[in-house]
């Protein structure tokens, strides 16, 4: 197939339009689902004791655990701080 830059530009614009259209449909689908089926909080699990010193490297783990914990207890991530992660 012969290809020209102008044809490629047209294809790109068309394809980007299709991608945005599909993903916008998905956004509305998700919003409808979330509205129709709201979240119900599960019973809180027993609290765990956390000890107090932390190695400096573990940024990703700290970020992931902080975000999950914040979602779980309903606080902002900067309202509390994880000081240590220990593997069992």
């Amino acid at each position: 197939m012969e290809a020209s830059v102008s044809a490629a530009v047209n294809v790109s614009m068309l394809a980007m339009s299709v991608i945005f259209t599909v993903l916008i449909i998905l956004i509305f689908t998700i919003k409808a689902l979330v509205k129709l089926i709201p979240y119900e909080a599960p019973p809180a699990p027993p609290a765990r004791k956390v000890s107090a010193s932390s190695p400096p490297e573990q940024d990703d783990q700290v970020a992931a655990i902080t975000a999950s914990l914040a979602a779980h207890i309903g606080k902002r991530p900067d309202e509390f701080r994880i000081v240590n992660i220990q593997s069992r």
């Binding site: 020209s4 830059v5 490629a8 980007m16 991608i19 993903l23 956004i27 998700i30």
Partner: peptide, 23 residues
Amino acid sequence: PTVLLLGAAAQIGVYMTLIGAVF
């Protein structure tokens, strides 16, 4: 869900490369 738009916008790399490849 609005961040889906970021996933769409990042596909611009695909199409800029398509144009570059045709060029």
